[in-house]
Amino acid sequence: MTQPIRLALPANECLPQLKAQFGACGLDLQALDETVVLELPDIIEAPLEVLLLPDADVGTYVERGVVQAGVVSTHLLHERDFDVWRPYTFEFGRYPIVLASRRGQTLASLTARPLLRLATPIPKFTREWFVARGFNIEVIPVDSSPRKAVILGLADGFVDRLVSAEDLTNFDFHALERMGKTSLKLVVNSALSAASRKAIQSLILKLEEQRPHDVPEVSIPFDIEDAV
């Protein structure tokens, strides 16, 4: 009997699209939530168990081999330095990483401050980006909603993935700089047996066949006056 493959999906904004693509591959995940583990015996060459985990934890479970495969964004892979393989890239879940601030501020006005304070859930990336460009900044790590940190006065700006332009415009914020991008990866434990790899490879082939097309890119709300 082949060992079952456990697949962990992240409980984040990409879940509906993940359910749709895996659904097109024959994995009915509509009943999936935090309380259930779905057992799907006949989809790939090994029994498949699908479960939901907090998105920041998926990489840890896969790295330690408790689950054999998972879906993780590249910004988390970079931030946590997970030692996992990443054999498939999803078409959705690609977001720009931006430096943002309240409307009216510019990159020049922010960097003119004696010490620029930036709130971010991705402190390692932020530190590396600014150090590489010779900026002296104070990185303020927050788990989520760095925008709130700016509104409350904890920081002068923030660095985060931009999932939708409205996340900035609805709150009178704007993007100052596109710092990078993040994408969504199927990740795999690095100590898998040949049989498990074969089973996961067959899942990847199904995903490739069902790759969605025309996934729109997020438009970044730079101010027009920034460009002038």
């Binding site: 060992q3 330690r64 408790v66 434990n189 100590a191 898998l192």
Partner: peptide, 9 residues
Amino acid sequence: IVSETIGRS
């Protein structure tokens, strides 16, 4: 040298 049951090298 890897072992799937402990999930690492």
